Deep mutational scan, measured.
Amino acid sequence: GRPPQPKSVEDLLDRINLKEHMPTFLFNGYEDLDTFKLLEEEDLDELNIRDPEHRAVLLTAVELLQEYDSN
């Protein structure tokens, strides 16, 4: 089946190999997954995450988090 739900933002970023963005998220108040899963493209602009590939991966991760919630 699906991988288990990540336990933290750090756990999530670790899985998608984008842990380099951890300080950015923490500094901007994305300390838990409840906050993280509200992330949208405009937020990525504000966080200055410009890499299109990173953005795509992050937004996909957000969608997956929302799916875990609805099940």
Rank of each mutant, 00 (worst) to 15 (best):
G1T: 13
G1E: 14
G1H: 11
G1R: 10
R2Q: 08
R2Y: 09
R2W: 05
P3E: 13
P3F: 13
P4C: 12
P4G: 13
Q5W: 08
Q5R: 10
Q5M: 12
Q5E: 07
P6K: 05
P6V: 11
K7G: 09
K7P: 05
K7H: 09
S8Q: 06
S8P: 03
V9D: 04
V9L: 13
V9N: 03
V9W: 00
E10K: 08
E10W: 07
E10Y: 08
E10G: 08
D11H: 03
D11M: 00
L12G: 01
L12M: 07
L12H: 01
L13I: 00
L13H: 03
L13F: 06
L13S: 01
D14G: 10
D14C: 10
D14I: 09
D14Q: 10
D14F: 04
D14R: 08
D14P: 02
R15M: 14
I16A: 08
N17A: 09
L18T: 04
L18V: 04
K19S: 14
K19P: 10
K19W: 05
K19D: 05
E20S: 09
E20P: 06
E20G: 05
H21A: 02
H21T: 05
H21E: 04
H21S: 03
M22Q: 09
M22I: 14
P23H: 10
P23T: 12
P23E: 15
P23K: 13
T24R: 09
T24I: 08
F25T: 06
F25L: 10
F25Y: 01
F25D: 05
L26Y: 11
F27H: 15
F27C: 15
F27I: 14
N28K: 08
N28L: 02
G29C: 00
G29R: 01
G29M: 04
G29A: 02
Y30T: 01
Y30C: 04
Y30E: 07
E31M: 11
E31R: 14
D32L: 03
D32K: 10
L33M: 05
L33D: 03
L33K: 00
D34Y: 05
D34T: 08
D34A: 11
D34M: 07
T35V: 07
T35C: 10
F36Y: 01
F36I: 06
F36M: 09
F36E: 05
F36N: 04
F36V: 07
F36L: 09
K37F: 00
L38P: 02
L38S: 13
L38F: 10
L39Y: 00
L39H: 02
L39F: 00
L39G: 02
L39P: 02
E40R: 15
E40A: 14
E40M: 10
E41L: 05
E41K: 09
E41G: 07
E41H: 04
E41D: 08
E41P: 12
E42P: 11
E42F: 04
E42A: 14
E42H: 13
E42Y: 06
E42S: 14
D43G: 08
D43N: 12
D43S: 09
D43A: 09
D43M: 06
D43T: 11
D43W: 00
L44N: 02
L44H: 00
L44M: 04
L44T: 01
D45M: 10
D45A: 05
D45N: 10
D45P: 02
E46D: 03
E46T: 15
L47S: 02
L47A: 04
N48S: 08
N48Q: 08
N48T: 01
I49E: 03
R50Y: 13
R50N: 12
D51W: 02
D51N: 11
D51H: 08
P52I: 06
P52V: 07
P52R: 07
E53Y: 06
E53Q: 12
E53W: 06
E53A: 12
H54C: 05
H54I: 07
H54V: 11
R55S: 04
R55N: 01
R55I: 04
R55H: 05
R55G: 00
A56W: 02
A56R: 15
A56V: 07
A56H: 12
A56T: 11
A56K: 15
V57Q: 15
V57I: 12
V57G: 11
V57N: 14
L58G: 05
L58F: 06
L58S: 07
T60F: 05
T60W: 08
T60E: 15
T60K: 15
T60Y: 08
A61V: 05
A61M: 09
A61Q: 12
V62E: 07
V62A: 12
E63C: 07
L64V: 10
L64P: 06
L64N: 15
L64F: 11
L64I: 08
L64G: 15
L65N: 02
L65W: 00
E67N: 11
E67S: 13
E67Q: 13
E67L: 07
Y68H: 14
Y68D: 14
Y68S: 14
Y68F: 11
Y68P: 13
Y68E: 15
D69S: 09
D69I: 02
N71H: 13
N71M: 12
